[in-house]
Design a protein around this nucleic acid. Structure first.
Length: 438
RNA sequence: GGAGAGAUGUCCGAGUGGUUGAAGGAGGCGGUCUUGAAAACCGUUGUGGGGCAACUCACCGGGGGUUCGAAUCCCUCUCUCUCCGCCA
């Protein structure tokens, strides 16, 4: 792990507090099993104990060393001085050996502990994959077309809004150009959502599209490794961000926040870059799974007792945004096996996408997670409560993921004439109410 | 990209290789005084690990080295600032 400056350097330790793991080993084991994560909790506990024993030993040795050094301060006769120096030399040797042992043990501990996932909200449905996600709500009316409707690829081409072919030559697969009204639509969607969030006290941000790898890792995004979805920038220790969650969370790394000012609510606009290696096929077509898209992301830092309410609040805001656009959707309570490592609970909004699958299907359009103190622990973001420093809770949620929202807009609001009707609430921002063939 | 300067606690700012976890300010908190406030004075005020605790260890940008002993000496990396160049 590249780790250069104090401000950027994040100490990656276990996802969960070691003491907690030790004291609640059975619970942690149970939780890992339910979340479909393979981790040897007993080994973590064992390594933790061993590491602590080594630390005790080193501390004692260092104490001896310090005492020995103190003795050298006054005037001493040659013989005694020589004895102390000899003793010091031996201590130095012993300490060096113990430190090597300690470091090895520490590394083994971190390696295993890093696999331990966050704990899980008791109401999260059990299951190994998304098929076990629990639908908790539906909103809106799924459109029934009495004409041969098109998917967004066709619409995008016919209306000269999206150009995949040219992008392929310039940047490769899974890139695209937005053109004409699609460009305005992107800006309008972001502005529309940002206005809603600002009224709710979110502070607008435009973040860097690049972040240090250790920051990304702190948020739970591993820039390295085979299944990484993150692009790294060669020889820089940086990566392209997959979401503004990384830069918004990183904003407060290593800080001790004023409890009175919590919750802190941020709305960050950024580009998002994802490698999506191996993702292909029907469900990844067109704009659904791309290497780059724009997104307005919500991010909240709060006290532990606030996080559940705020998580629900973010879901409400997401619903408000999509209801305002008139896009039919359902809300899903994501199951244990599909939570990833950091989320304590996660709600997805899936919009109806007529062009998806045979006769239209739900497609994920937002996702909001309560990560509790999981990311805060890795990023060392704390606050004072009752005279003690405690880790804050961190939550994130999609306000607008432009590319997928475009799919829903184009496909749901197409007309018989092959045109697109712009939702009423968006017209203020687009300046046009319809997209027609030019 | 070139040249130089620097990085110490909440902030400013000292620091000769050996009571420096760190002087001195400022700020915060507690108190004395005051009808109240200000001023003045006294006290207190970093983070992390281990331990029930007493206590102990680590941390002066990161990493490494020299030494019995490093904030202090050496190497290296990163970052910051100033000037020049380039530039939206």
């Amino acid at each position: 792990m590249a780790c250069h400056t104090i401000s950027a350097c994040v100490i990656i330790r276990g996802m969960l507090d070691f003491k907690f793991i030790k004291d609640n080993a059975d619970q942690v084991k149970d939780n890992s099993k339910r979340r479909n994560v393979k981790v040897d909790v007993d080994l973590v506990v064992e390594l933790y104990g061993k590491r602590n024993a080594l630390q005790q030993r080193i501390d004692n040795l260092r104490q001896s060393r310090n005492e020995n050094a103190q003795k050298m301060k006054g005037k001493l006769d040659q013989k005694q001085k020589a004895e102390f120096i000899q003793e010091g030399k031996e201590l130095k040797e012993t300490i060096a050996q113990a430190e090597v042992e300690y470091r090895n043990m520490q590394n083994r501990l971190f390696e295993e502990a890093a696999k331990v996932p966050n704990m899980t909200h008791p109401e999260v449905p059990l299951g190994n994959d998304e098929s076990a996600n629990r639908e908790i709500k539906r909103w809106g009316t799924v459109p029934k077309f009495d004409f041969k409707y098109k998917d967004h690829l066709e619409l995008g081409k016919d209306l000269d809004l999206i150009d995949f072919e040219s992008a392929q030559d310039v940047a490769g697969q899974k890139f695209y150009y937005l053109k004409n009204q699609a460009v305005i639509l992107e800006l309008a969607l972001v502005r529309y959502a940002l206005d809603i969030l600002q009224k709710q006290g979110f502070v607008p941000f435009i973040t860097p599209d690049i972040a240090r790898e250790d920051i990304a890792a702190g948020l739970g995004f591993n820039p390295r490794g085979e299944e990484s979805n993150i692009y790294t920038l060669e020889d820089t220790g940086m990566c392209l961000i997959g979401t503004a969650e990384i830069t918004l969370g990183g904003y407060y790394a290593k800080r001790i926040m004023d409890a009175v000012k919590l919750p802190v609510k941020l709305a960050g606009f950024s580009h998002c870059f994802r490698r999506e290696a191996g993702a292909a096929g029907q469900y990844s077509k067109g704009l659904y799974r791309v290497h780059q898209f724009s997104k307005l992301e919500m991010f909240i830092i709060c006290l532990p007792e606030q996080s559940e309410v705020l998580h629900n609040h973010m879901l409400e805001l997401e619903e408000m945004i999509y209801q305002g656009l008139g896009i039919p959707y359902r809300v899903v309570d994501v199951c244990t096996g599909d939570l990833g490592n950091q989320a304590f609970r996660k709600f997805d909004i899936e919009a109806w996408m007529p062009g998806r699958g045979e006769n239209g299907e739900w497609g994920e359009i937002t996702s909001t997670s309560n990560c509790t103190d999981f990311q805060a622990r890795r990023l060392q973001i704390r606050t004072k409560q009752g005279g003690e420093n405690i880790f804050v809770h961190m939550l994130n949620g999609t306000a607008i993921a432009v590319s997928r929202t475009l799919i829903a807009l184009l496909e749901n609001f197409q007309t018989k004439e092959g045109e697109i009707t712009i939702p009423q609430n968006l017209i203020t921002y687009t300046g046009f109410s319809k997209i027609t063939k030019s």
